[in-house]
Amino acid sequence: MSLKHMGTSVVAYFKRNLLPGPVQVTSQRSGYLPLDIASNFLALICRWLSLLGMAALTAIMFVITIDVVLRIALNRPIRGSIEIAELLMLPAVFLIIGLVQHLKTNISVDVLFTRFPVKMQAVVEFLITFLSLGICSLMLWQAFVFQRYLVDTHNMSVILKLQTAPFHVALVVGYLLISLVFLVQLIESLLKVVKK
């Protein structure tokens, strides 16, 4: 079995066994196998992490609802329900940003772009992906800085004294993932520029 064949079957395995389900992830066919593998592997991680994020979202909903119900029924709310919800917002949002960019559904304006000639579209796409990667990796770096700050200052929530640092890890992971997705997309767009 050739290396190429093995690679192709790995991709096929990912697609068949791990990617179906509520999150549809299309494989980008760049015609360059290592890139396709990387892209699909990232997609896999994006998917699993986003499921975690959605679990956090569900938890937020239940915590607030139970808090309200207990308060109304027994005049005894859940201590610190609001700070639990606030901290869970971090995984609920940031564990999904990688997926959003993988699917290229970030909010953008395409009125002008779609009128560019194909060659120019490829160049612009490369440029924009480069800038996006730039700002996301800066934010990743700063997320690390902030993580250290939270740990160093023993940052805690007000009521339950929950350590905030573990929740913030979701933010670091999210920016790491979106940066990697942009990196793969940058190489893809470079290939497109070179090809044409």
Partner: peptide, 10 residues
């Protein structure tokens, strides 16, 4: 609030 037996609501 908790010390006084009140119900703190954030």
């Amino acid at each position: 609030a908790e010390t006084l037996g009140a119900v703190p609501v954030t």
